[in-house]
Design a binder for these strands. Sequence first.
RNA 1: GGUCCUGUGGCCGAGUGGCUAGGCAGAGCUCUGCAAAAGCUUCUACAGCGGUUCGAAUCCGCUCGGGACCUCCA
Length: 502
Amino acid sequence: MALQVYNSLTRQKEAFQSIIPGKVGMYVCGPTVSGESHLGHARPFITFDIVYRYLKHLGYSVRYVRNITDAGHFEEEGRESEDKISKKAVLEKMEPMELVQKYTNLFHWAMREFNNLEPSIEPTATGHIVEQIVMIEKIIADGYAYVVNGSVYFDVDKYHRDFGAKGMQYGILSGRVLEEQLETTRELESQDEKRNKQDFALWKNAAPEHIMRWQSPWGIGFPGWHIECSAMSTKYLGEEFDIHGGGMDLQFPHHECEIAQSAVCNHRIPARYWLHNNMITINGRKMGKSYNNVIKLSELFAGTHELLTQGYSPMTVRFFILQTHYRSTLDFSNEALQAAEKGLRRLWDAFTQLNKFDISNNNITAGDLDLEAQCYTVLSSLDEHMNDDLNTARVLAGLFELVPVINSIKDGLVAKNALTTATMLMMKEKFNTYLVDIFGLREERKQDDQKLSAVLQLIADIRKDARAKKDFATSDKIRNQLLEAGIQLKDEKDGGVSWELI
RNA sequence: GGUCCUGUGGCCGAGUGGCUAGGCAGAGCUCUGCAAAAGCUUCUACAGCGGUUCGAAUCCGCUCGGGACCUCCA
């Protein structure tokens, strides 16, 4: 089975086929850098990092565009409208661009911690004001936007009538019916500038106190919320590209508006496959600013938030996210994170052990046919699971099924020749491919340097002598005190000793 | 109120109508001087009530609960 993905646009799983064979264009909505990223933000960036890595693994040449929104959105509609970034800048007594730089740097730091690959292009909204203005001018020229008091609004109703006939009705992505929307919406204040409630801003006139402002054909102002993505995706990926990604909460109105804007300019829906990750919840509720329940990434790693009983490493968080399918909600709790931490360690230890095995002997026939068959079945199912809408949870479950096999071979509970060399090599290959290449997991425990190793080897030898003399008081003292210092000694079955920094 | 999603064992979570996912925790056992680690075994759940079916966690209906979007949001 080839790769299938769930396309929000068609509401079904579809075989993935790129527009240009061998090449994929992918656009993912990036962060608004008016504040520090939180756990909820981590999910799309990790999810689409997996998509990126997997497509590359499949041999595609991928152009991955992920924007930085640094121009600011409306905090509230209408008269009281404020730009998030300029408001925050005043509070922190910073230049807007200084503030944006600060949070962009923090965002990049978090992405590196998560071991996310860098996108091919990371365009900023402020760097594409001209492109946005050009696009808005075209929409006005075609009659789908109107200017009021230095602001420009998109005429959703006219768009819907004209483009609905061409199969691009407003609501096509989110499954909303415009007519029903109109009936159910309540009266909002400060809607006087818009012809209709559902119209959205392409360009917003800036009040004098606004700090972020640009000259435009309609006066001084700043771009509307949705136009940057349309402008930048068109510029770097073309009028039609393969994948558009983002969180489910962006499906409406953000992506819906993007489709409308791009459709007017390019006469087509900009992306073929629309992929949306689900939310991370905390006590069953979405993590978000409006709920005041966010855990910032720096707090999460350090364990400094009041909801945290400890810190969780970036790889633990990454693994935690991968253990769930990306379209399911994922509920945060200390218990769940701790389970992920332990699970990851167990899996990673087995993986490390697997890589230490010497698989040079040439077993053509398996010593244990049942086990051989069982392992082979699991190994060959991994790609199927990944191709089934990126089911990372099932791939991980499959890898976990092999952990006892690896550990048993290590401890001599299963004979070294139980499996054929071909299966052993396949196991090694699959573990490396999935854990390292596709899932982007990496060792993050402190590396024990050479000097420390020498010291520990000496101590282990002394302890071994003590044990040989049945001087368990001394041997236990060594082990217990090292444990207090964060070094765990483990007596191996073969009489050797291993240690682990914890 | 409208649109949509969802309800799985102590916790987290996968599940294409039939073949006990997986992780964490718990219990027992094995190995071990004792631990740790590891292995084996165990805990066999699908909100409730109906219906379809030879067979339903999976399909349909109703009831109850939870959530998302409709407004900034990953």
